[in-house]
Design a protein around this nucleic acid. Structure first.
Length: 479
RNA sequence: GCCCGCUUGGUGUAGAGGUUAUCAUGCAGGAUUGUCAUUCCUGCGACCCGGGUUCAAUUCCCGGAGUGGGCGCCA
C-alpha cells in the first residue's frame, strides 16, 4: 500500500518547530500518545481529500510522514470546510487542531488490527499555495510514468514516496561511505573544478571561459588529489562533481556525475582495493541494518510491488571481494567463447560473460599498461601472458558494470615523464602536476567510484538518471 | 556517432485504411460514508509535425522532431 510511508525520523533527529509548524507529521505518529488533546499546527502537501458532505478527511504529507486531518463543519466552520473540499491535490496547507486517536479501520474477520494511529482534528486551515490541476504527473497515482516525463517535472516526481526514498538513501550512502573513510584516517578535501589543463589527455572536456583565458570543467580530481599526497596530507577523499563531454547515451552514463575519490600514501593497488571493499561492505551493511535505511528500501519495494517488479534485497557482500586478474579474465572469456585478444579492453558483451560467474562485486587487477593512463604505476618484470608490461591499475565491477577504476600511481618522475611522452602527451602542459614529483613524494594509490552507479546497484534502478536529482546527459541540461 | 524500436486525453495504455477511438488513472459535478486505494452515478479530455499513396490516413510509405533500447567510451 503506497500510503504506508516509512519516513518517520529516527529518534536521534531533532525537528525544531518552525514558523509554519509546531510538529512534523512524523512526530504526530511517533509521539501521538503524548500529544493527545494538545493543540498543534502542521503543514504539508494535500495528498488526497475524501468526503464531500459535512465531514472531510485530508491526507497531509510532509518530509517526515503522512497524517490524516479530520474536518467537521462543527469544528472548523462551513466556509473552511468547503475550501478544503474544493482544494486540489498537492496544494500546500497548514492546519491547526488537536491531536486525537484515529478510529481504527474496519478490518475483515481474521485480519490483525493495525497499531494505533493519530490524526489532527482541525479547527483552522490556511491555504499556503493552491496546486494547479491537472498535475503533470500524479504523485500517488498507480499508473506508470515515463522517465522523461518524470525528469521534466522532477519537483513533482520527487514527491512520490519511492523517488523521495531514493534520494534519502543516496544521502545515507554518502554518509556511510564518508563515515568509514574517516575511521580509516582519511580527511575530506575539495579540488578545483575549473582547470587550465586538460586533465588526462585533452579530449572530452567541457570548455569554458575563465575571464580572458580558455579553461575547462574538470573531468576528475585525479591530478590534484595526487598533489595532496606530495603535500603530505597522506590520506584524502573527495565527494564532488566530475564533468565529461562524452557523447554517450546509455543507462549508466552522465555528463555530470558525483565522483567518490580517495588517494592514499605509502600504499599500493592492493592496499586501496582493501579500503574500497571495506568501505562498500560498510555501506551495504549499514543500509541492511539501519532502521531508517531499511524503511527506505521498504518504500522502494512497496512501489516495485505495484509495478510487478521483484523486491530489491540488500545482500551484504562478503569480504574480501573476488579478484580476477586481467590475464585470467581474458582466458575465461575465451573459454566461454567470447571474442577477445590479450591487450583488448573488455567490452560489454564480454563483461556479461564474466558476470555469469561473478554477478556482484569483483576486482579486475593488473591490466596491461597500454590500456591505462600515464599516471598508473607499473612494476618492471610483471608481464602478462604475451610478455607485455602489466600495470598496477584495477577496476571494480558489479556484474557487468564498472563501478570504479583505480590503481597505484607512478611516483617516479622519470617514468612519469616517459609515460606522458609514450602516450603522446606533452609533459610541459602537465608541469603543474609533474612539479609535485620533483621534491620527494610518497608512493601512493587511489580510486574513483561513481556514486550513481553504486546507488543503481543498491536500489535496482535500471537507469542512472533515476539516482540523480537533475541529471545532465547528452540531451538534457534543464531543469 | 552507429544499429533497432516507439510517439493516441494531464499521466500511462488498447486498437483498426471508413461508424461515437478502448481501458485505467485524473479532472468536474452529484449521491453515500469516521473515511482510509471508499463505493456508486453523470460528465470532460487524445491519434507528434510535414509531405506522399488512397474515394478516404490517426492507421500504409518517405522525411523531420521527440523519445526508448543496444553498442562504442567510461565512473
Amino acid at each position: 500500500m503506497l500510503h504506508v510511508l516509512h519516513r518517520n525520523p529516527p529518534a536521534m533527529t531533532t525537528w525544531v518547530p518552525t514558523a509554519y509548524r509546531t510538529h512534523t507529521l512524523g512526530e504526530i505518529q511517533t509521539l501521538g500518545a503524548d500529544l493527545i488533546d494538545q493543540t498543534v499546527t502542521v503543514a504539508g502537501f494535500m495528498e488526497a481529500n475524501r468526503g464531500k458532505g459535512a465531514i472531510c478527511f485530508v491526507d497531509l504529507r510532509d518530509g517526515t510522514g503522512t497524517t490524516q486531518i479530520f474536518l467537521k463543519a462543527d469544528n472548523i466552520g462551513p466556509e473552511s470546510l468547503d475550501v478544503v473540499q474544493r482544494m486540489t491535490r498537492e496544494s500546500t496547507l497548514q492546519f491547526t487542531g488537536t491531536v486525537s486517536l484515529k478510529r481504527p479501520p474496519k478490518v475483515k474477520e481474521g485480519e490483525p488490527t493495525p497499531p494505533p494511529a493519530y490524526e489532527v482534528l482541525a479547527t483552522a486551515v490556511e491555504v499556503i499555495a493552491r496546486a494547479e490541476a491537472p498535475l503533470p504527473l500524479g504523485v500517488t497515482d498507480t499508473v506508470n510514468v515515463e522517465l522523461d516525463t518524470r525528469l521534466d517535472n522532477r519537483f513533482l516526481d520527487l514527491r512520490r514516496a519511492h523517488v523521495n526514498a531514493m534520494f534519502r538513501l543516496r544521502g545515507k550512502v554518502l554518509q556511510f561511505g564518508r563515515q568509514h573513510l574517516i575511521t580509516e584516517g582519511f580527511i575530506e578535501t575539495h579540488t578545483p573544478k575549473i582547470v587550465a589543463t586538460a586533465t588526462e589527455g585533452g579530449t572530452d572536456l567541457f570548455p569554458m571561459q575563465y575571464f580572458e583565458t580558455p579553461a575547462y570543467l574538470n573531468q576528475s580530481p585525479q591530478l590534484f588529489k595526487q598533489l595532496c599526497m606530495s603535500g603530505g596530507l597522506e590520506r584524502v577523499f573527495e565527494i564532488g562533481p566530475a564533468f565529461r563531454a562524452e557523447k554517450h547515451d546509455t543507462y549508466r552514463h552522465l555528463n555530470e556525475f558525483i565522483s567518490f575519490d580517495i588517494e592514499c600514501s605509502w600504499a599500493n593497488d592492493d592496499d586501496v582495493m582493501g579500503v574500497l571493499e571495506r568501505m562498500l561492505h560498510h555501506i551495504w551493511k549499514s543500509v541492511a541494518e539501519e532502521e531508517e535505511s531499511q524503511g527506505l528500501i521498504a518504500t522502494i519495494n512497496a512501489y516495485r510491488a505495484t509495478q510487478e517488479e521483484e523486491a530489491i534485497e540488500v545482500i551484504v557482500p562478503e569480504l574480501p571481494f573476488p579478484r580476477m586478474e586481467y590475464c585470467d579474465a581474458i582466458r575465461i572469456i575465451k573459454e566461454k567463447g567470447g571474442t577477445i585478444e590479450w591487450g583488448d579492453d573488455i567490452d560489454a558483451e564480454n563483461s556479461d560473460l564474466l558476470a555469469e560467474d561473478l554477478p556482484q562485486f569483483y576486482f579486475l587487477p593488473r591490466w596491461p599498461m597500454s590500456l591505462k593512463p600515464f599516471y598508473i604505476h607499473h612494476v618492471e618484470g610483471e608481464q602478462g601472458s604475451t610478455d607485455e608490461q602489466l600495470s598496477r591499475g584495477f577496476d571494480l565491477n558489479f556484474g557487468r558494470d564498472e563501478m570504479t577504476s583505480g590503481g597505484q600511481r607512478e611516483h617516479r618522475i622519470e617514468v612519469l615523464i616517459d609515460n606522458l611522452k609514450k602516450m603522446e602527451l606533452d609533459p610541459e602542459e602537465f608541469e603543474f602536476y609533474v612539479a609535485g614529483f620533483r621534491h620527494g613524494v610518497p608512493p601512493h594509490a587511489g580510486w574513483g567510484l561513481g556514486v550513481e552507479r553504486i546507488l543503481m546497484k543498491l536500489t535496482g534502478a535500471k537507469n542512472v538518471r533515476e539516482t540523480v536529482l537533475f541529471p545532465r546527459d547528452r540531451k538534457r541540461f534543464c531543469p
